[in-house]
């Protein structure tokens, strides 16, 4: 018994000696894993149309130009939709690493939009690890297109609002997934009989195919009463990153590129060729010096 104990003890001591000889760093390294934030779940602050869990860095300005052409199903006379184009230009700015404000204008209904997006929780590993990121976005929109109604709509009639929660996780360097429930309220519904307040459940995914390219999916399903011509906005895309630019090429059935438009005003059956080709161009500018 004593012999066994002695052997165990001896081998234990020899083992510690052995470990010491292997690496000097072992003597001084901290055993506690440091908290590390998980970054780059998506290449851009938008999956395609919807906000992603990614934020702009502090003092970064993101100039985004988004284009959606006509339906490919419109045929050769419309050059498969390329004769028509809707666009949205936006300027997003990172106030802090966790808060972004943005302003955009869409040609569709000549609509202006303003939003604030804040990250409440960031996914991390190590001490106090968080399995997910949680972001909240809220926006205010107003369309400025001329109305031919007998009673002209005033500012508040033209306004709509949204609030969206985005819960996402980077599962691996390749795959990220997010859920994005959204509540959209329009003062005046687009079609008579449409619900003014629409809740929609959304989902977005990113699948990296190379270091700088990724496939993306962006989908929302509105609940509530909308005109029967309305369909669920569905987009599939390819992200291409080149330094300060991100190009997002996509096929989508949505014309609208702001929250109100793509949730409440998407028509066209994606699976029957009512698909639009489109692209988003994002360019990040550094405003001032970044200091940690």
């Amino acid at each position: 018994m004593v012999k066994v104990k002695a052997i165990i003890l001896l081998s234990f001591i020899l083992l510690t000696v052995q470990l010491k000889a292997q690496s000097l760093l072992k003597d001084i390294e901290d055993s506690v894993a440091v908290k590390e934030k998980i970054t780059g779940a998506f290449k851009s602050t938008r999956v395609i149309n919807a906000h992603s869990i990614e934020m702009l860095h502090k003092r970064n300005l993101d100039v985004r130009i988004m284009h959606r052409f006509g339906f490919i199903s419109s045929g050769v006379k419309q050059l498969y939709g390329l004769d028509n184009a809707a666009m949205r230009i936006s300027f997003d700015y990172g106030l802090t690493d966790n808060t972004t404000i943005g302003f955009g204008r869409s040609t569709f209904r000549k609509e202006l939009d303003l939003f604030v997006k804040t990250r409440i929780v960031q996914q991390s590993t190590g001490v106090g690890a968080m399995p997910v990121s949680l972001v909240v976005a809220a926006g205010d929109l107003v369309w400025t297109e001329e109305s031919f109604n007998m009673v002209k709509p005033n500012f508040s009639d033209r306004s709509s609002y949204y609030v969206q929660l985005i819960l996402g996780r980077k599962f691996s360097s390749i795959f990220s997934l997010q859920l994005s429930p959204i509540l959209v309220h329009s003062s005046t519904a687009v079609n008579t009989g449409d619900d003014k307040t629409i809740f929609a459940m959304g989902g977005g995914a990113r699948f990296k195919v190379s270091k700088r390219m990724a496939l993306t999916l962006d989908y929302h399903h509105p609940f509530g009463v909308l005109n029967q011509i309305n369909t669920d906005p569905l987009s599939v895309g390819l992200d291409i990153e080149t330094g300060g630019h991100v190009f997002q090429l996509q096929f989508s059935n949505a014309t609208g590129m702001n929250e109100r438009a793509y949730i409440t005003q998407t028509t066209g059956n994606f699976f029957k060729g009512d698909i639009r080709f489109g692209f988003n161009l994002s360019r990040i500018f550094n405003i001032g010096k970044h200091k940690k």
Binding site: V34, T39, G40, N60, R212, G243, G244, I284, K292
Partner: peptide, 21 residues
């Protein structure tokens, strides 16, 4: 020994690309 994520760049986007790509 050094943690690669601990490198700080003046441009945050450059830092992100350094780590990611």
């Amino acid at each position: 020994a050094v943690l690669m994520k601990g490198f700080e760049f003046e441009k945050a986007l450059m830092q992100e690309h350094f780590n990611e790509n």
